[in-house]
Amino acid sequence: MTSDYLTHIAQRLQGLTQVVSPAGYEDAMIRKVQSELPKGLHEVSVDNLGNVIVQVNKIDEPNPFKVMVFAHMDEVGFIIKKIEEDGFIRVERLGGIPEKSMLGQSVIAETPEGKIMGIIGTKSHHLTKPEEKFKLPQVQEAYLDFGFRSKSEALEAGVFVGMPIVYARQFFRCNSLAFSNAIDNRAGCLILLELIDRLVGKSLPCEVVIVFSVQEEFNLRGVIPAVRAVNPDVSITLDLVVAADTPDLKGSADISLGEGPCLNLYSFHGRGTLGGLIPNPKLVNFVKKVADAEDVSLQYSTFMGGLTDASFSQLENAGIPMIDLAFPTRYTHAPVEAVDLNDLTALIKLLEKLVPAFHAGVDLKRG
């Protein structure tokens, strides 16, 4: 892959990750996506939940074969639950925020007057008792410091109970690796935008619908109205897979940055949701054949303890053959995540050939 294209991908990813868009508050990302869509699309709409539905083309025949590709726009964050009389802020998590990543981190609140910066407080090291040094405070014990001296000062600044908070924006590169907040799942949105650019205006054997979905980090069901409306014959979800190439995860899985995109063969959350995805075997083989033909090296993954937008949306209408395609990511749900730009470009290349390979004669029936 040329350095110019990697630079293009990095710049576009940086633009997407700078947008503040926690689950349920995706309006800024809705506007960002709309601003980056090319001309010549058949239709672009936003449903009542905020899903951006992009119909790339239209086939004038009864019941055309429909392919849907989707990725979520939202990110994890916090919700303000209480403003203390002394101006400190108490929060609840919005999505899967791990406590181990919280303390001392910079955060952003977007008020009607603009963005304000703060930090998640942490007890000064010099006054931390020995028995507290290895204790991890729970999110309910955390407090945010925006520099307010009183509750009234916070309210005057536009802060309110129910306001979302996100980690501070940052982005940097080291060779082909990009480090940023909200790579989950702005990298998926980047891939969708690049795919649209490559497919618009082309003669395709199927109708292609691209969806930028909402509230994945909240309860994974925000995309369901879009799935019901599109009613695809097959669908592809784009999200991350945890890379296991760091010193603390080596040996736990065979997923590494820079070794290509991932085909997820199993996901299961457990923990009460009982959600997950075991993809249609014929669909798995179809993807493998296209990847082989295009010389795209795939990594194969299983994802215990994780979910994607496919976990529940696969059950809509008459049931939809779905598959998770993913990019390996380090430090998931931390304030800064890491991805290899080469994995993103390989996934774009695969999708550019995979999506137009679907047509009405493709056999995905079970049995």
Results as ranks from 00 to 15, higher is better:
217 E>V: 05
268 F>K: 08
250 K>R: 14
222 G>N: 05
269 H>P: 03
222 G>S: 04
235 S>Y: 04
230 V>N: 02
213 S>V: 04
250 K>E: 13
231 N>G: 08
235 S>A: 15
264 N>Y: 06
252 S>D: 11
271 R>W: 12
202 K>Y: 09
197 D>G: 00
262 C>V: 13
225 P>Y: 02
199 L>W: 11
265 L>K: 05
248 D>H: 09
247 P>Q: 11
202 K>L: 10
198 R>Y: 03
266 Y>M: 10
205 P>F: 03
212 F>R: 00
221 R>F: 02
247 P>N: 13
249 L>F: 14
192 L>Y: 05
267 S>A: 04
270 G>W: 08
246 T>S: 09
242 V>T: 15
232 P>Y: 06
261 P>H: 15
194 E>V: 02
251 G>A: 11
196 I>G: 00
264 N>C: 13
228 R>F: 09
244 A>D: 10
233 D>T: 05
243 A>T: 12
192 L>D: 07
202 K>A: 14
218 F>C: 10
188 G>T: 13
260 G>S: 15
195 L>M: 08
224 I>N: 07
223 V>Y: 00
212 F>A: 02
189 C>I: 03
204 L>S: 04
222 G>T: 06
242 V>N: 10
229 A>P: 04
234 V>M: 13
261 P>Y: 14
200 V>T: 15
212 F>K: 01
246 T>N: 12
251 G>E: 14
196 I>R: 03
226 A>Q: 06
199 L>N: 02
256 S>E: 15
210 I>F: 01
219 N>E: 02
245 D>E: 00
257 L>A: 14
265 L>Y: 11
267 S>D: 11
244 A>W: 09
221 R>G: 05
263 L>M: 15
196 I>A: 10
223 V>W: 00
234 V>H: 13
210 I>E: 01
243 A>I: 08
196 I>L: 01
246 T>M: 10
209 V>C: 05
212 F>Y: 15
266 Y>V: 01
207 E>I: 08
204 L>V: 03
237 T>H: 05
211 V>L: 10
230 V>A: 07
213 S>L: 01
192 L>N: 12
253 A>Y: 15
257 L>W: 04
240 L>R: 02
223 V>H: 00
225 P>E: 04
211 V>P: 01
254 D>E: 15
210 I>P: 00
218 F>I: 12
247 P>S: 11
257 L>V: 05
251 G>T: 13
191 I>A: 05
271 R>F: 09
250 K>G: 04
223 V>F: 00
201 G>Q: 03
228 R>D: 14
257 L>C: 14
258 G>L: 07
215 Q>F: 00
201 G>A: 05
265 L>P: 07
207 E>Q: 13
